[in-house]
Amino acid sequence: MNAITSYAHIKHNTVTVNGTVVFKSASSVSIHEFLLESYKFLAMNYPKFHKMDVQCKLAIIATEFALRETALLTENDLAKIAIVFSNHASSLDTDKAYQNSISDKSNYFPSPAIFVYTLPNITIGELAIRHKITGENAFFVCEKFDPALLINYCESLYLNGIDAVIAGWVEAETNNDEAFIFLSESQRNTNKNAIFKPLNQTTLTELYNLT
């Protein structure tokens, strides 16, 4: 039976993990500062983090929080863990930053370090590198969080030999930054903090709306 074993939700400078608020910054704090404070709170030693765009940082931080509550990474083959993300804006936040770097012909310095983040699936790539996860990838773009899409696609991955999925919604957009990441596994994992909720639309909708 495939289950949701942990989830993390970042919204309004607040991190909720499995229904409990675990970290919070003042609402006046910018998304950049909030993400840096979260990074410090997690005591992550990962200098690459500072090079990422907001979307990647949101995904890295939310996943890091969710993973602490499960043994997903140690109890599954890393080649059989899939990452499936979705959002509405694709990489628009960074697209605009890149467009700005080329719109003034007298100050024309296209930056490769910005351009590389103008693809939404770089978020998946950064997470894969962070945890050495080499399984299936997909980045879907839809108008709003779509539990049916994510659940159905997770199920199809399980039919194709995947053992665990890191999935969710990651959106970097001014005043609307959000990450909702859930972990799902085909086998029970041994971490006592893991939750075991059925992997279905009703449950996922509930967990998303809870916070």
Binding site: P47, F109, P110, S111, P112, A113, V116
Partner: peptide, 17 residues
């Protein structure tokens, strides 16, 4: 410093800028 290939391209931009 542990820089990578994208950093190398950025250093080229830095020199120009």
């Amino acid at each position: 410093l542990g820089l990578d290939s994208i950093d190398a391209l950025e250093l080229i931009v830095l020199l120009e800028k």
